[in-house]
Design a protein around this nucleic acid. Structure first.
Lengths: 214, 214
DNA sequence: CTCCAACGTAAATGTTCATTCATCTTGACG
DNA sequence: CGTCAAGATGAATGAACATTTACGTTGGAG
């Protein structure tokens, strides 16, 4: 099979995706043309079509990546934590918004602010593209279930009020995360320290002595 | 001046804006063409240009409307309430997401779900369009200030923890509101009752006897 | 070392779309 | 009522863009 070696192919695909992500982050999905992406990647206009069937498919890949890279840490923390309080969950989620870069599946560093900007744009696509919508809903429900499970464990351990309905509680945690994600991407939220303390103050009525702010 | 009477002109402009809002809500800003808008309004392709200089200007008008109609009630409640707790503010904000229609400046009813879908798409525009960005930031800051002021009054009255920083508290309230707005528009959040109770449970540790669901 | 399928290129294609314009219609003022 | 500037029309325009294609290039299997 005298094509290219699989690793080379994978690397080039990732190279084109990274170029697309930069373009999308800068100009938006629909203000970025395929020639723009090709130029950013330093290849000819037809080259991306060797790796993606259409622009739609690039958007889908970028959107899936953005959600996964942002929410995987949150989901893993929710699944791993023993009996987290609501404040623990929120603080862990916000920590995921505060880092500079995350690693993709092959260990390549990806700037978080690019992911956030792509995620915000993906929300618009969710409203009208069924492929994006079903993937996004699937990811959302997965994270929400993890958080709801964690809240149930917290209720058993007595650190989460029994009267609170875990499904709604998980929706609120997701909402706060989405909302601060939006502020970070679009509404000039630059300073992330202090939120975990304030959340603890609001939810537990007390400041925690051994604070964990970075 | 044998043009049209000012009320007629205003009414037709609103008619075209309503058509545009339906199109944008259904298909998105960039999948809606100017002929689409004209057809939805039942006029010819050139007609909208008598009322708006460009498609950009229609998007700007719709975006401004969407933010204003959703957040004006929140801002007014925050400004009017005497010494609201955080739970009061959140509950009031969520109530604004639960209604079917709101009235625009001339008293015409506007479906809230159309506004929510336009608002989500506006976030994408904020990332790359300076005119949309400056208007959105202005509106955001205005609401945020109202909430922060209300939190300060709450601190004076002793219903908001003094240790919480009001600026960050206002950002969190806005975040929760934006996040649940997003879930309502894009992530299948249909049932809005119960959130106000859960918020009270989380923040005050107690269920309020005379509950105000809805 | 050779070969050839896959890769990469860049121009071409066919379509879509925002905006304009020449022309007809209308409605309010005198 | 008649006038005429503004309103409305819809075909025309020109640019942009996603995708295709015809052709040259290359890397790795044999």
């Amino acid at each position: 099979m005298p094509r290219i070696t699989p690793e080379r192919r994978e690397a080039k695909r990732a190279h084109i995706m990274a170029a697309a992500r930069r373009c999308f982050s800068r100009d938006g999905f629909h203000q970025t043309s395929m020639p723009d992406i090709a130029a950013e990647a330093g290849v000819s206009a037809g080259a991306p079509y060797r790796y993606f069937a259409s622009k739609e498919e690039i958007i889908l890949a970028i959107a899936a990546d953005a959600f996964r890279l942002i929410f995987d840490p949150v989901e893993q923390l929710a699944a791993a934590a023993d009996a987290p309080s609501v404040a623990d969950l929120v603080a862990a989620a916000l920590a995921a918004l505060s880092v500079e870069t995350v690693a993709d599946s092959a260990g390549r560093p990806v700037p978080v602010d690019e992911l956030l900007r792509c995620a915000v744009q993906t929300w618009s696509e969710v409203l009208r593209d069924d492929a994006v919508r079903s993937r996004a809903l699937e990811g959302f429900e997965s994270v929400r279930r993890s958080i709801a499970d964690a809240l149930c464990r917290g209720q058993t351990a007595g650190v989460v009020p029994l009267a609170m309905e875990p499904e709604r509680g998980a929706r609120m945690v997701m909402g706060l995360l989405h909302g601060l994600l939006l502020q970070r991407a679009a509404f000039d939220l630059t300073e992330m320290t202090g939120f975990d303390e304030d959340i603890r103050i609001l939810l537990e009525g007390t400041e925690r002595p051994g604070a964990s702010s970075r």
